[in-house]
Simulated scan of single mutants.
Amino acid sequence: MVFIREIDAAQVAKSVMILFAVLMFRNIIANIIIKALKKLSGKYNLKNIVLVLDSIEKPLVNFFTYTGLYFALIILPFNADINIFLNRVYRTFVIITITQGLLKIISAYAEELNNQYLNKEEKTERTQMSKTVFPLLAKLIKAIIIIIAVAAIAVEFNFEQLSSILAGLGIGGAALALASQDLIKNFFGGFVILADKSFSVGDWIKVDSFEGTVEELGLRSTKIRTIDKELVTVPNSRFADRELINFSARANRRVNFTVGAVYGTSSESLKAAISKIKEMLDQNPMVKNDSALVKLDKFGASSLDIVVQYLTTTDYTEFMAIKNDINFKIIDIFNEEKISFAFPSMSVYMEK
């Protein structure tokens, strides 16, 4: 079979010149088009169009490259079969370019919408859910676009062959279903999380032995950043059959501890210390109103135990800062009342 007919130097030169011109001017042409469209969108106040134009700049350059290469090749005197093949390859690259552009547009819009909600000071339920839904929805739309693109490319290279391949896959469908059980469970687990509103991106949660901030909710797994800054990837199916604690869902965080005073402390000093601690907690703006409880709880083995309870913010960093401040103030109050802190001790009596 003859793939190419007689060719002369003029055809080769013309082909090389087209290819050279496209490679030289593709970026310039793309920039001119993008700038012209941006100027037009600015004139009519179309802000969303600018985001689209920024996303398609690279795919546009690729389109000019593929188009230039295609025109450079079809000038050459290939036979009919090769020309048909070149047409199919060119259309395939056009599909890839369009797919690339759509994926970039979706990524840009998802990031823009997510940033808008991240910048909001108020953390409403809608805001939290939006931060979770936008990335997940973007991934789902991307997956659909890729599937459509693959199907379109398969159609370009003979639909009958695609039907045969799908029929062959049907024979091994049972094995494929068994192999993808976990994947399907994780996929639907992500939608269960959204439906139940168990948690959102940014929430502090604990599942099994993992505790931290939810950074990303994907189609297959959820990423959690622990206190030690480790990134843990948890399959979504695990949230369906295990206990989940969402610390961010609570309105306040409870602090509960016991302070021990040495035996021998006078009741007047204890009462004064308890009263001052209670007053200090009531006046603290970071402690919830009417949540403070300070009482002489019990007579311990080596101390007079004073129980201290109060409610404060759920943010971990603020929570630790508030606890730190209150604990130092309790030390100051004990020092003012000349009360010593008790520690585990034992008295030994020896008989002669």
Rank of each mutant, 00 (worst) to 15 (best):
T317Q: 04
L102A: 09
E268F: 03
E6P: 09
E318H: 11
F187Y: 14
V262D: 01
T124F: 03
L19M: 15
I29A: 13
I339D: 02
L219C: 03
Q128P: 00
N284Q: 05
N48C: 10
E6C: 03
V50M: 10
L231C: 09
L76D: 04
K223S: 11
I171R: 10
G264V: 02
D81E: 15
G42E: 14
K276N: 14
A154N: 14
I75C: 12
V94Q: 11
I153Y: 10
A261I: 03
V2M: 15
F25K: 01
E215K: 12
I171S: 10
V22N: 04
D332Y: 11
F299A: 05
A249V: 06
V348N: 10
L304G: 00
L217K: 08
I224R: 07
F20C: 11
L231D: 11
A154K: 10
D8K: 13
E230Y: 13
L166T: 13
Y109T: 00
Y349S: 05
D332T: 09
V22E: 09
N324E: 09
S267L: 08
F257P: 09
N31A: 12
L304T: 00
K276H: 13
I105Q: 04
L86K: 12
D54E: 15
S209I: 05
F63R: 01
V259N: 01
V192T: 11
L311E: 11
M346A: 12
K197L: 03
P344Q: 09
I141Y: 02
K298S: 15
I95A: 13
D228M: 15
V308G: 06
Q100I: 11
T312E: 10
N252D: 03
Y263E: 00
K288D: 10
L176W: 12
I245F: 00
F63N: 01
S248F: 04
T312F: 14
D315E: 09
D315L: 05
T314I: 13
T226W: 07
I56R: 00
G68L: 01
P285E: 04
E215P: 02
L176E: 02
P344W: 02
I333P: 08
L23F: 15
S209V: 01
